[in-house]
Write a protein that binds this DNA or RNA. Structure first.
Lengths: 213, 213
DNA sequence: CGCCGACTACCGGTAAACCGGTAGTCCCGT
DNA sequence: ACGGGACTACCGGTTTACCGGTAGTCGGCG
């Protein structure tokens, strides 16, 4: 019984390459490939995979948004997130959104099939690099609790898109919510962080690794 | 006679996946895989590939720097750059640094072997998405010779203060000039850099080291 | 159960960003 | 000498940021 996988990545070359890599694994079968969050969700209404493997950075839908939508469609469907960075806030947000595995791209190639098998079997998979970052956060204890004003997953999404230079209207369209709501999110973020300009928010996002400078 | 390729990407999963994808192509052979710019340069002192395929975003060495170093080692070695974004200044910079092909990751999977064959044969390869951006740039009067948009000293001052989160009015008071003049400076900066939001200007300033994130 | 935080959404308002011009001075390079 | 870029400054316009409220649902927590 092969593990049936749907792959998602907006970079089609990477998508084809990952598919090729998984094709070499005897017990894993790629039954669908999506190049956007919307396409992935549409695919899930027609197919019943054992697991979804998706890049967290896709235009039009962030990884957090995709994870929430997938959980709405099928809360029991395991999702393995593929990410380039190890920001702990983001990782925690993804797990809160229902993701069951988090794999950084800098991990070894053979970690991907292992992660897929683990998550498909109902386990939780966490890359070593991310585990270290999370442990550091826990070890610091007070750092994670007090020093960092905690933003909700939606707020992290909005902050990331703001740091990308997008307007509230654009962000609203991408997140499929009202511009007024995006406004409120931005204002709450500014209040929590005590930052009152897009420039400062952008630098904060860069410091937190939410976006590349 | 197979085309001998050295692959470089800091994301090892992607590296393995790309290698797997190329292994399916009969006339292309991956003879080396590097996970950092330094490892790639070291590899080039021992091996003689027909072409280097490298991601432009690697920690410890930017794509521009890697391209220059490779050109120092062997000016005739074709380099195909793999990138996620289509910023035209960056693309022009890469070509000025000696790169002979530029492929965006969102291109179709079969574009990679085609690009490799073209570049290995001495041709220049450019993804369609990037070609559009470059054509636009040429039409606007930007020639390949001046890839680096030069900012005047006053413009650099204004950019730094903008990245600090200050308003035009505040900047005007600090620089002892009219707010209208600050406006003009900001608009000229945005036109030159082709960036149209404070968030993007801020990230540019961080990249250029004008301010700390 | 009630409170609080997150998320959703709206109204109204002031300030600022953003874009299109025009225009003068200065200096530098062809 | 003439063009071009930098710096200075203004006019007018649309869009967005930013701040002050209010208000509903939902889930968690004491």
């Amino acid at each position: 019984m092969k593990i049936r996988v749907i792959l998602a990545d907006d970079h089609r070359i990477i998508l084809a390459a990952l598919s090729s890599l998984l094709a070499r694994t005897a017990d894993i079968e790629v039954i669908g490939e999506a190049t956007s969050g919307a396409e992935l969700l549409e695919m899930l209404t027609r197919m019943q995979p054992d697991i979804v493997v998706t890049d967290i950075a896709m235009p039009g839908m962030t990884g957090l948004e995709a994870a929430r939508r997938i959980a709405e469609i099928d809360p029991d469907l395991p999702v393995l997130a593929l990410s380039g960075h190890t920001d702990k806030h983001f990782v925690l947000g993804m797990f809160n959104a229902g993701v069951r595995g988090y794999l950084v791209k800098s991990a070894a190639g053979d970690e991907l099939p292992r992660a897929i098998r683990a998550v498909a079997a109902g386990d939780t998979y966490l890359s070593g690099e991310v585990a270290g970052a999370l442990a550091e956060g826990v070890r610091a204890g007070h750092t994670a609790e007090r020093a960092g004003p905690r933003l909700g997953p939606r707020e992290l999404q909005v902050l990331t898109l703001l740091a990308a230079g997008k307007s509230s209207k654009l962000i609203a369209m991408e997140l499929q919510i009202s511009p007024a709501t995006v406004e409120v999110h931005r204002r709450n973020i500014m209040r929590k962080l005590d930052l009152h300009s897009v420039a400062e928010l952008t630098k904060y996002a860069v410091r937190e690794g939410l976006t590349d400078p």
